[in-house]
Design a protein around this nucleic acid. Structure first.
Lengths: 222, 222
DNA sequence: GTGTTATTCAAGGCATCTCTTGAACAATCG
DNA sequence: CGATTGTTCAAGAGATGCCTTGAATAACAC
């Protein structure tokens, strides 16, 4: 025994939470699960991995207590076990943004050049929502919109955008958002809308960040 | 190329911040560094590891950008590179407390039975500080007290406590604190004081948590 | 019951992590 | 200058992590 080993074991256990997030694929999983619960094969498709591998990563998250699972017939649905897990993920992401060298380059490798993209902050959007002079566009799969969205937003999933542009009122100012700062759907939407002559901007990050600040939301459980 | 790999690389980079914390010894290092800067051999003593191994862990934290180093003569001092790192560590600890099974058992293995220990919350202490009817006792090394402490606290380092009990005013109510929720110094102090008939309690956690809530502090940089 | 679908389990190969040891380096002291 | 002190580097052994593959479960449909 001895305090030495007891202390080491305690901090080892505290580090388990970090180990659970210490993998790119599991980070992607948590990022998707922050939008709501998902089945294993949906998650596997999102992170572009085999189902077996995705299942193993989910077991790891489960063992660390960061997610819970629920059986529904033949499917098993995973979800974050508490809002604190979302907070942990966002804090970790912030820390990486601030401190991990190379992150800027990797982000622009994936997201492309964002310098020409108009963006608005949460505060700006909140003000404009109160004034009512803006159309908020949720560019996520319908399921995620249903699980919760910015109050007053309209939903057009990414793959439907081209064919459903008519639903956007003529002459409206549009603010698009999706899952978070590293989600491309809103970027694509803003680029498309801009090309069509619509005045469009993207929200600086996504729905989870909006909800975490207790700004107005609608959907399941509200 | 392809988005597939770019996305994976981006999330791998985000996970780097978690990997840096995904080790018990590095968690201990961050926990100590949250009290202020330290040299390599001081840190090695704190985490009970060889200097070489401690140095390697510090390199890892440095590479992830979570700490910075400063040379002073023959010594090199490390410190957290921003308050966000402290926040990340506290959030991770909270997540582990809430979700990692076995943590309670490991904590009591190290800390002993806390059920008989009086504790006060930050809010309670704040109120009593305003009323002025409490003596706040900082049970950390002098260096850490000097780097910052709860405003109005008196400093008695852990190893001096027995010999300096006389400095505590007769009949006072004492609230002791140290580095954080898993630091034993305040526990030991409260137990010692209670045995001597002093009315003593420990603050629920430590100085970094107090400072993070922007409660009144004194010391370097204030 | 059989067949189908969704998920997990088990085993293996390769990479990374962790700690040890002993040497190398860098700044100071005499 | 050489000696000392504090820190880092380099190499290696053993453990753990990650992804692949193929088989095993579990619930459902017929």
């Amino acid at each position: 025994m001895g305090d030495h080993q007891a202390k080491a074991a305690l901090y080892d256990a505290l580090a388990e939470a970090a180990k659970a997030l210490a993998n790119g694929r599991r980070a992607e999983l948590v990022d998707v699960l922050a939008q709501g619960e998902r089945s294993v094969d949906e998650l596997a498709a999102e992170i572009e991995q085999t189902v077996a591998n995705t299942s193993q990563h989910l077991q790891r998250l489960l063992k660390a207590g960061l997610v819970t699972s629920r059986r529904d017939g033949t499917r098993i649905h995973y979800s974050l076990s508490s809002p604190l897990v979302g907070t942990l993920w966002r804090t970790m992401r912030q820390a990486a943004e601030l401190h991990v060298a190379e992150l800027d380059r990797l982000a622009s490798d994936y997201l492309g050049d964002r310098t020409k993209l108009n963006t608005v902050t949460r505060d700006q959007l909140r003000t404009r929502l109160r004034q009512g002079d803006v159309v908020v566009l949720d560019v996520r799969p319908e399921q995620e919109f249903a699980a919760g969205h910015i109050r007053g937003a309209i939903s057009i999933p990414p793959q439907d955008l081209k064919s459903r542009l008519g639903e956007i009122p003529d002459g409206a100012d549009v603010v698009a958002y999706c899952r978070g700062p590293y989600c491309v759907y809103a970027d694509d939407a803003v680029r498309l809308l801009t090309r069509r002559g619509v005045n469009a901007a993207r929200l600086e990050d996504g729905f989870p960040e909006w909800a975490a600040e207790r700004l107005p939301v609608s959907g399941a459980g509200s």
